[in-house]
């Protein structure tokens, strides 16, 4: 039995009839809301989202669709604006991140939407809501990389590879023959060092950076 058995009765006659009693509801989405729009609008870069009038110039000229099928800046904006949160999470959450920031969309937008920044803001909005259960490899690497920069002020190749594999739960894979022998080759040819150098007094800078990023 369908859920929406709302009736339309005129002069005692039920017009829609019994169809709704056994036909499944066609409704995919209920109750439009501006809640998400207001949230994205407050994020850095999201300020111009309300200007969009959905012409599609951004997606039409986007660098990405050639490589990432469903990447659609116009669509992301529309979903947020109309509160189609479920669809944004189920179909697009992985895609929003793929933007390469070429800024073609921003330069071409006839309404003055800063599209690239808005897309970033939407990604941030999703991140804040913790919709990404497991980190993708890209994201895990990004995080490890940033941690390293903030903590040590430089990249230590061995450490970053180790942390990356640890973060994605694949330490065993790292210790397998292939990766280990590749690492040994790079070490003997002087491409990597076992212990990276430290930067003098980095602690203070690190502290300051952490405060700023809070």
């Amino acid at each position: 039995m369908a859920e929406n058995t709302d009736k339309m009765v005129i002069d005692g006659v039920e017009l829609v009839g019994i169809w709704k009693e056994f036909m499944p509801s066609r409704i995919l989405y209920e109750d439009v809301t501006t809640e998400f729009l207001n949230e994205v609008k407050k994020l850095p870069g999201g300020e111009t989202i309300a200007k969009c009038y959905q012409c599609g110039t951004c997606t039409g000229g986007c660098t990405l669709p050639e490589f990432v099928d469903k990447f659609n800046p116009r669509g992301f904006i529309n979903l947020v604006r109309r509160g189609h949160y479920d669809l944004l999470v189920s179909d697009y959450k992985e895609l929003v991140w793929k933007c390469v920031s070429c800024n073609r969309c921003t330069h071409r937008c006839p309404k003055g939407v800063n599209t690239q920044e808005v897309v970033r803001a939407i990604a941030k909005f999703l991140e804040d809501r913790k919709v990404f259960g497991k980190l993708t490899n890209d994201e895990a690497f990004d995080e490890v990389f940033m941690d390293e920069v903030i903590n040590d002020g430089r990249i230590d190749e061995v450490k970053i590879v180790k942390d990356f594999y640890a973060k994605t739960g694949r330490l065993k894979e790292m210790m397998s023959g292939d990766q280990l022998s590749l690492g040994f080759k790079m070490f003997t040819s002087g491409r990597i060092k076992l212990f990276g150098g430290k930067i003098k007094d980095w602690k203070k800078v690190s502290q300051r950076l952490k405060e700023e990023l809070q």
């Binding site: 929406n4 009736k7 995919l28 989405y29 209920e30 109750d31 959905q54 669509g75 529309n78 669809l87």
Partner: peptide, 21 residues
């Protein structure tokens, strides 16, 4: 229509291809 004593409208959000209530 009326749904739980509240006006309820139906339309299609044609840009994203979604019927809405």
């Amino acid at each position: 229509t009326l749904k739980n004593q509240q006006l309820s409208l139906r339309a299609e959000e044609t840009i994203m291809d979604r019927p809405i209530q």
